[in-house]
Design a protein around this nucleic acid. Structure first.
Lengths: 116, 116
DNA sequence: TCAATATTTCGATATTTCTAGATATATGGA
DNA sequence: TCCATATATCTAGAAATATCGAAATATTGA
């Protein structure tokens, strides 16, 4: 990921409706949700949500597939991972003391079942 | 960190000059840089930079201390860490398989000297 | 106190983003 | 084919953001 891609990704998340949508979709991984249900859940008109979804999709943070008349949206965790790594790379200039605490917290937070 | 704080932090990074500034300051941890030198390095007028620095400071991503006539800016890695953890918390709903790959990559990327 | 230096605040303008209604497109079923 | 459903695109006004020059503020040293 380059700087311009990261800015697009950060911008796409830096808005309350879109952050809500992204978090909602992360919670519904790996099944996803249809656009209409997302609009209903986050409480915005359908057209407004559609433009937000298109911004998230353009930024690569979500994907969509058609299911009949519905569009099923899913969070793109691979892109999310790339963004996180990009942000971390800034602090990895040979000085592991900077990011070691973050890794330690991440590990204790959610990697209970992860490989060592 | 709550959602509104995260949006402020994400917004502060989602702009090219400010992302450049933040990365520059991360590279200069823990010494920091005076505002004038930051402006010169990223190539924007001093007043423009000052408003960007104030946005980053308000978001908590940077701190400043006075040194004579200069203001020394530093990246706030603690805030950066909190933001990262907030983003990760979204994917930690008991499903470690989602974030385990990120942790693995982070570990191999920059935690060579970190405790296990 | 005065001049020089470093930075911030103010203000005006240009650009971008957000929102949502009207309309268009795509799909499935009668 | 025609209609209902689901979503996307178009459009425009409102709001927020970016930029930067002029002026103000804070600090140092003579």
């Amino acid at each position: 990921m380059d700087s311009s891609t990261a800015i697009t990704a950060l911008s796409s998340l830096a808005q309350s409706t879109r952050l809500d949508v992204f978090r909602l979709l992360v919670k519904h991984e790996p099944i996803g949700l249809p656009a209409g249900e997302i609009a209903q859940t986050v409480g915005v008109p359908q057209t407004t949500l559609s433009s937000h979804l298109s911004i998230l999709a353009h930024a690569g943070m979500v994907n969509s597939t058609r299911d009949g008349r519905s569009m099923i949206y899913r969070a793109d965790l691979e892109c999310f991972r790339a963004l996180t790594l990009f942000l971390f790379k800034d602090c990895c200039g040979g000085r592991s003391e900077i990011c070691a605490p973050v890794i330690a917290e991440l590990t204790s937070c959610c990697a209970k079942g992860a490989p060592p």
